[in-house]
Simulated scan of single mutants.
Amino acid sequence: MSDGDAGRPVEILLAEDNPGDVRLTEKALEKGSVLNNLHVVNDGVEAMAFLRQEGDHGSAPRPDLLLLDLNMPRMDGQEVLAEMKADEELRRIPVVVLTSSAAEEDIVDSYDLHANAYLTKPVDFDGFVDIVGSIEEFWLSVVKRPPR
């Protein structure tokens, strides 16, 4: 975030098809200290439309961070990563894969597609809040992100 952006909310895009995980992420971010706007899409096709400001997402803000689930309908997280990182306009948006999969193949494939981080979702609420809190602290408070 550049100095000129101080005080503005951080724009977060959550690509997640599980309503329970969406609610947990919302609650965890509410507990945090960083002012943010959370935008939610339910599959990879909608994620790409949001990122490209197409269709219903024509006025969508450019996200400062994408939290990406791998297992989604229509277009999975790996496909979203591949498409994003091949696009000059989108490739600099940091992507944190936040998924239930701990499979080594998914981890390796995500990093091969240039994910910035890979985190496995904890099954309990406190663990989920902790992991989202660590994302918030690192990616939204510590890291210098590219300008929008």
Results as ranks from 00 to 15, higher is better:
D112K: 13
E105S: 10
L35W: 00
S59R: 13
I135K: 00
F138E: 03
N37T: 09
D76Q: 12
E79I: 03
V95N: 04
R74N: 15
D43K: 12
V40N: 11
F50Q: 03
E30C: 02
V108I: 13
P122Q: 06
L66F: 14
R74Q: 15
E104C: 01
L35R: 14
V143C: 01
D124H: 14
S33C: 04
D43F: 09
N36M: 04
Y111T: 05
E30W: 00
D109M: 00
K144G: 00
Y111K: 05
G32Y: 04
S141N: 06
P94C: 14
L29V: 06
M72Q: 05
N116T: 09
H114I: 00
A28E: 09
L70S: 08
V97W: 10
P122A: 02
D106R: 06
P73K: 08
D126I: 07
G44F: 08
V95C: 11
E46V: 06
M75R: 15
Q78N: 11
D76S: 10
L38A: 06
E30T: 03
R92C: 08
E88P: 13
S33M: 06
R23N: 05
F50Y: 09
L90A: 10
P61T: 08
Q78K: 12
A115H: 03
L140M: 15
V132R: 02
H114L: 07
L65Y: 12
A102N: 14
D76P: 13
I131W: 01
E30S: 07
E26V: 06
D43P: 11
P63H: 05
D43M: 13
P61I: 10
V45G: 14
M48R: 07
N71H: 14
T25V: 06
L68A: 15
V40D: 08
V80F: 13
T120L: 02
L119K: 08
L68H: 15
D76H: 12
N42V: 12
E89D: 15
G55N: 12
L29D: 01
D109Q: 04
M72T: 09
R52Y: 05
E136M: 01
H39N: 15
I131N: 05
P63N: 06
G77Q: 14
P63F: 03
V132L: 01
G127Y: 07
E46M: 10
A117Q: 09
T25H: 04
A28H: 07
D124T: 10
L35E: 12
T25W: 03
S141A: 12
E54W: 00
D87P: 02
M84A: 11
R23H: 07
R92M: 13
L81A: 05
V123K: 11
D64T: 10
G44K: 11
G32Q: 06
L24N: 02
D87Y: 10
V96A: 11
D106K: 05
A49V: 00
G32M: 05
R62P: 02
K85G: 02
I93C: 05
K121L: 07
H114P: 03
V143N: 00
S110W: 02
